[in-house]
Lab assay of single mutants.
Amino acid sequence: RGFLEKAAVKKMAKAIMADPNKADEVYKKWADKGYTLTQMSNFLKSKTAGKYDRVYNGYVIHLD
């Protein structure tokens, strides 16, 4: 289950990176699912340092 969630989160993160207008909708879905910042950090780990920082930081702001 965790692997599928991670894959889904990364897919949506890539969608945000391609079209930032989708961010609020995606952040709301993640918040509704109760994803914590720790979970998001783990889901968005990448071999490329900083690749998903913008998405993660946007989610931090959304939760605030």
Rank of each mutant, 00 (worst) to 15 (best):
residue 55 V to D: 01
residue 46 S to V: 07
residue 63 L to H: 03
residue 28 K to T: 10
residue 4 L to I: 11
residue 43 F to I: 09
residue 35 Y to K: 00
residue 58 G to N: 04
residue 52 Y to N: 02
residue 53 D to N: 06
residue 2 G to N: 11
residue 62 H to P: 01
residue 22 K to Q: 09
residue 37 L to R: 08
residue 9 V to H: 01
residue 5 E to T: 08
residue 41 S to P: 02
residue 32 D to V: 08
residue 35 Y to Q: 00
residue 42 N to H: 13
residue 43 F to S: 02
residue 32 D to L: 11
residue 60 V to W: 07
residue 42 N to V: 11
residue 41 S to I: 07
residue 19 D to K: 04
residue 21 N to Q: 10
residue 33 K to T: 10
residue 35 Y to D: 00
residue 9 V to L: 04
residue 2 G to L: 13
residue 25 E to F: 09
residue 43 F to L: 09
residue 50 G to H: 09
residue 9 V to I: 10
residue 15 A to E: 14
residue 32 D to H: 09
residue 64 D to T: 14
residue 24 D to H: 10
residue 40 M to A: 02
residue 21 N to R: 13
residue 17 M to S: 03
residue 13 A to K: 02
residue 12 M to P: 00
residue 18 A to W: 06
residue 28 K to F: 04
residue 39 Q to H: 07
residue 42 N to K: 12
residue 46 S to T: 08
residue 47 K to V: 07
residue 40 M to V: 11
residue 62 H to K: 04
residue 58 G to M: 04
residue 15 A to M: 12
residue 48 T to S: 10
residue 51 K to P: 05
residue 7 A to N: 11
residue 1 R to D: 11
residue 2 G to K: 13
residue 4 L to D: 12
residue 61 I to E: 14
residue 25 E to K: 08
residue 4 L to T: 12
residue 1 R to N: 12
residue 19 D to N: 09
residue 14 K to L: 10
residue 50 G to T: 06
residue 54 R to N: 15
residue 18 A to V: 11
residue 13 A to M: 03
residue 43 F to T: 03
residue 40 M to W: 02
residue 15 A to K: 07
residue 25 E to Y: 09
residue 49 A to N: 11
residue 44 L to E: 01
residue 15 A to C: 12
residue 40 M to Y: 00
residue 6 K to T: 11
residue 39 Q to L: 06
residue 31 A to F: 08
residue 8 A to N: 09
residue 28 K to D: 06
residue 18 A to I: 11
residue 19 D to P: 01
residue 1 R to V: 14
residue 41 S to W: 13
residue 49 A to K: 13
residue 13 A to W: 03
residue 9 V to S: 01
residue 39 Q to S: 04
residue 53 D to R: 07
residue 12 M to V: 04
residue 8 A to Q: 10
residue 2 G to I: 12
residue 37 L to Y: 04
residue 51 K to Q: 10
residue 55 V to H: 02
residue 44 L to P: 01
residue 62 H to D: 01
residue 7 A to D: 09
residue 22 K to T: 09
residue 31 A to V: 08
residue 16 I to R: 00
residue 29 K to H: 14
residue 8 A to I: 13
residue 45 K to L: 09
residue 7 A to S: 10
residue 27 Y to G: 00
residue 12 M to Y: 05
residue 28 K to G: 08
residue 9 V to P: 01
residue 51 K to E: 13
residue 11 K to I: 10
residue 43 F to R: 02
residue 9 V to F: 03
residue 45 K to T: 12
residue 43 F to C: 06
residue 57 N to Y: 14
residue 20 P to V: 06
residue 27 Y to A: 00
residue 53 D to F: 05
